[in-house]
Amino acid sequence: MNERQIVLEVNGKEYKLTVKPNELLINVLRERLGLMGTKYGCGVGECGACTVLMDGNPVLSCQMLALSASGSKITTIEGIAQNGRLHPLQEAFLDEGAVQCGFCTPGMILSAKALLDKKPNPTDMEIKEAIRGNICRCTGYINILRAIKTASLKLSERSR
């Protein structure tokens, strides 16, 4: 089939890859680059487990062809810790008990990160809107909401 070359920047590192038209972005991230943090859930755009950031915005990596992602900057859950230190959102999720089975967590954290990057002090409603596309079936939404608020506070203290 008509394989083509794409260039992807994933977590700050540039990759040149040859992909088939029917390869999904999630296939490339997990199977080619070994980044298993991005989860495959429903496959039809309802659960948000496959969420990654594309040029800073949350998108669904199982609803996107690798070819159409070419040229973009992708951030996965593996890319947000810095210098061996967890991102404040990751810390807050652990501190607040917002992780149970963990399957929704990467997508949930990335959706939250995109929100906080744009809006450092969101309201509860804005947080709920931001993670509306990320389904948690351990139903830990209360702790998740609290974790995102805690991280928002931590981040604004840090930038002070």
């Binding site: 038209p21 390869e23 999630i26 296939n27 496959g43 039809v44 070819l67």
Partner: peptide, 15 residues
């Protein structure tokens, strides 16, 4: 049903 890979073959062009 759905799967994590797309089994159908198709071509793609970015116009």
């Amino acid at each position: 049903s759905s799967s994590r890979i797309i089994t159908q073959d198709f071509d793609y062009i970015k116009a």
